[in-house]
Simulated assay, not measured.
Amino acid sequence: MAEFKLDGRMTVKGLKENFKKCFGASLRVYTTPACKTFADDKATLASIRQADAKGGSLTVGGNLKVGNFEKKIGELYGIGVQVSDPSDKKLVDNDLTLAAAGK
């Protein structure tokens, strides 16, 4: 089962690339939980983290549901993420697992 670890030192670009490599799905990263403005690919997760977010590291497995993953990232970093299909054309259902989202 694919899994990856992320922490505040990871860049947005690195997060998206690792996510795609592990799960096959695309990841959209935003500067706020409201998912209005895309985050800069060169920024680190720590640099875009909201002041009241705790930060830290997280290990993510393929059996985690999309909705739970998006919620955990929001709680940890105070940023928004959305999982989309492999071609990044549409968002996937929150009830799918991360592994299923890339198929």
Rank of each mutant, 00 (worst) to 15 (best):
F4H: 10
V12G: 00
T11A: 11
A2P: 14
N68D: 15
D88T: 03
R9E: 13
T59P: 07
N18R: 15
F69E: 04
M10T: 10
S57W: 08
V66S: 03
Y77P: 01
K36P: 01
E70N: 15
G14D: 11
T37H: 04
D95N: 10
L96N: 05
M1D: 14
L6K: 06
T37F: 02
D7P: 04
K89P: 01
A101T: 02
A43V: 02
R28P: 01
C35P: 01
R28I: 06
N18A: 13
G14E: 14
A46D: 10
K16D: 06
N68I: 13
L96M: 13
D85V: 05
L45F: 04
T32L: 01
F4Y: 15
V29I: 12
S26G: 14
K89L: 10
A100C: 05
D41S: 03
C35H: 03
A100Y: 01
S26N: 09
A51R: 11
K16Y: 07
V60W: 00
M1A: 15
K13E: 15
L91V: 06
E70K: 13
P33Q: 09
R9K: 13
F38D: 09
A100Q: 08
E75A: 15
A46Y: 03
L15C: 09
A43S: 11
D52P: 03
P33K: 06
G74P: 05
L98A: 05
S87F: 11
T59M: 11
T32P: 00
I79N: 00
K21C: 09
F23Q: 01
G24Q: 07
G67A: 15
R9V: 09
S57F: 10
K20D: 10
E3S: 15
R9F: 08
G67C: 12
G8Y: 03
V83N: 00
D40C: 03
D93N: 12
V29N: 01
T37E: 07
A53L: 06
K72V: 11
D93A: 08
